[in-house]
Simulated scan of single mutants.
Amino acid sequence: MSPVHTLRPRAEALASPLPPLLAAAEQLARGVVLGEHGRKRPGMGDAFWQYRPAQPGDPARSIDWRRSARSDTHFVAEKEWQAAQSVAFWVDRGQSMQFASHKGLSTKADRAALLTLALSVLLVQGGERVGLTDMGIRPMGGDIQLGRMADALIETREADYATPDVSILPRHSRAVFVSDFMSDPEPVEEALTTAADRGVTGILLQILDPSEEAFPFDGRTVFHSVGGSLEYETRKAGDLRDRYLDRLVRRKERLALIAHRTGWQYHCHHTDAPASAALLWAFGALEGAR
């Protein structure tokens, strides 16, 4: 059976044994409609909130043709937040995410995809709209959308490392960035600043292999990137351990600080830990990001 057909059933299986999480999703769905006055967030209510430029994926019926006639740009009239909210996922599919320290462990990419789809299943069950930032369309609900995401999540990019894509983040929505965050952190800072300027809140979910936390290397060792573009050889790998671990701690602290400054939340998950724990945290964090 191909990875496309196995990823979604595994994600649903991960979500199914979590009754408290499913109950929270159902309660969240029941509490979405907040009454006649609504909340001042874009959504699918009846009261006008704001105009915004049309984006790829917007249906033609959502365009306000009277407002658009006064400009060269098509505009969408957004409504108050009285129904489904949007959650956009950026999932790092660079080559570095294909790493696993031994055959008994999931790759970081596999765990990231599984958690992303399992969280999306729960959100859709709660009436939310979900999507990947690089799918070219705005977040949507339903099983068809989950299928599209499953298809996209098995793709791997050619570059060793990827950078966050915030090109179609809906304003005042929520977002989830899933990555090992082992590359240059500046693009992450820029992406979160852009997201914050749009009123977007969310979570950074860092996925690491346990060997990346322990650095169990000694003696002569050749380090190379998964994509093969980088290579470093040393005869005394053990001498690098303290410096590496110190840099990793500082990287985590920087990510947590970036998240805090922009109103996001940060969490680190290891591929040898139960996926359900990260799923539970992510769902709770997203609920708090409303």
Rank of each mutant, 00 (worst) to 15 (best):
D160S: 06
E190G: 07
L115M: 12
V121M: 10
T156H: 08
E186Y: 11
D151M: 10
D165K: 02
M182N: 05
E186M: 13
L117G: 06
I168D: 09
G202I: 03
G126K: 11
R171N: 10
A162N: 01
I154P: 03
A152M: 12
A175E: 07
S120W: 06
A195C: 03
P170C: 09
V178W: 03
R157I: 00
L119M: 12
Q145I: 03
E189C: 05
P185M: 06
A159N: 08
R157V: 00
L205P: 09
M149I: 12
M135H: 09
T116A: 14
E190L: 09
E128S: 11
G127T: 12
A196D: 15
R174V: 03
G142R: 08
A150W: 08
D143Q: 12
L205C: 04
Q206A: 02
V176C: 03
A196E: 13
G126P: 10
G136R: 06
G126F: 04
L204Y: 05
L114E: 09
D165N: 08
D197Y: 06
D134I: 04
V200E: 02
I154S: 13
G126V: 15
T133M: 04
G202P: 04
R171Y: 14
P185R: 03
D151V: 14
E186K: 11
A175I: 07
I137P: 00
V200W: 02
P164G: 07
T193P: 00
H172Q: 15
A191N: 03
F177D: 00
P164D: 07
L205W: 05
E190Y: 08
L146I: 11
A152E: 11
M140P: 01
R171D: 08
T133K: 02
F181L: 02
L122K: 08
P170L: 04
T133F: 03
T163H: 13
M135R: 14
T193F: 04
D165A: 01
D180L: 01
Y161N: 03
R148T: 13
V130L: 11
A175S: 10
G131P: 06
Y161W: 15
L119E: 14
E158S: 00
V176H: 12
I154C: 10
S120H: 06
E155A: 11
Y161C: 02
A150C: 11
S120D: 05
Y161D: 02
R129A: 08
F181G: 00
L115V: 12
D151E: 11
Y161M: 08
I144C: 03
V166L: 07
D151I: 09
I137N: 09
R157P: 01
A195E: 08
R129M: 10
P164M: 08
A162Y: 01
R198D: 05
A118R: 13
E158G: 00
G131K: 07
V200Y: 03
Q206R: 14
T156F: 15
Q145D: 07
M135A: 15
V176A: 01
M149K: 14
I207C: 05
I144W: 10
T201D: 01
V178E: 03
S179E: 04
I154Y: 07
V121W: 14
I137E: 08
V124F: 10
T156N: 04
